[in-house]
């Protein structure tokens, strides 16, 4: 080993990352080279000084008042008491609620998947099988707006669906109504969990994603072509070219 080789392995030598053979070569070189010994000591001194720096440094001003302002500002809607109750409830029953919501969502996702495009832009299965809700706006005002939009749109679409009920096959209509019921049930589960934990971002995102799914289902159902004369069953289940 020469001085250039030593420079290349200096840091690994200091950090103990060399193999025994490499370490031996470095030590042999150091015995014969005072320049590299001095270089090694300079680096060790730098690292020792870094490790000895104080682990605690007081800020020049008290930051607590600003932090307190932010805590109070962020909790206008949920009082500390409600938050404590929510946490206590969530720690006691949260896993049950989460399981119920998850089962409801999976049921909806699987049961309605044939009605949908292959990929839902807001809700996807991850490789490990868990449901991934993609980032969406979940500020309280967004939730309120989304809910209002959902209620208005779903009412109109249900009306359209009822008006043209006779033009769809009974089987198709039954499948549509069953899926609407499943999604309504999931929305109820999520809203029940949200009452106990209103600020939970995952639940809020799930609610938005489920609203979107319900609307998409209704839009597609109202856009279904009328059944062909003489055919009594739902062609959408058999005719892949018309599959939604």
């Amino acid at each position: 080993m020469n001085c250039k080789d030593f420079q290349e392995v200096l840091n690994d030598f200091i950090d103990g990352l060399l193999s025994p053979e490499e370490k031996q070569k470095v030590e042999t070189h150091l015995e014969a080279c005072p320049v590299c010994r001095e270089e090694l000591e300079r680096f060790r001194s730098l690292i020792a000084e870094a490790r000895a720096l104080p682990k605690s440094v007081s800020p020049a001003r008290d930051l607590w008042p600003d932090i307190l302002d932010r805590l109070e500002g962020g909790e206008e809607e949920i009082s500390a008491e409600e938050k404590a109750d929510s946490r206590a409830w969530w720690s006691r029953y949260g896993f049950l609620a989460a399981a119920a919501v998850l089962i409801a969502i999976i049921t909806v996702f699987l049961a309605t998947s044939f009605f949908m495009e292959r990929e839902d832009p807001s809700l996807q299965f991850a490789e490990d099988g868990s449901i991934q809700v993609l980032p969406a706006a979940t500020a309280p005002e967004d939730i309120v707006l989304a809910e209002a939009e959902y209620l208005t749109a779903s009412e109109k679409l249900l009306q359209v669906l009822n008006e043209r009920g006779d033009s769809l096959s009974p089987k198709t209509l039954a499948v549509v109504r069953q899926n609407i019921g499943l999604i309504d049930s999931a929305i109820g589960e999520i809203k029940g969990a949200l009452e106990k934990d209103p600020a939970n971002p995952q639940l809020n995102q799930l609610l938005l994603a489920t609203y979107q799914r319900q609307l998409k289902l209704l839009k597609r159902a109202t856009a279904l072509p009328p059944r062909k004369p003489g055919r009594g069953t739902g062609f959408i289940l058999r005719d892949s070219s018309n599959r939604l």
């Binding site: 605690s56 440094v57 007081s58 930051l63 607590w64």
Partner: peptide, 11 residues
């Protein structure tokens, strides 16, 4: 807790 740990966090 803040008073106890702020120095470490700030550093």
């Amino acid at each position: 807790l803040y008073r106890r740990h702020v120095g470490r966090v700030y550093a």
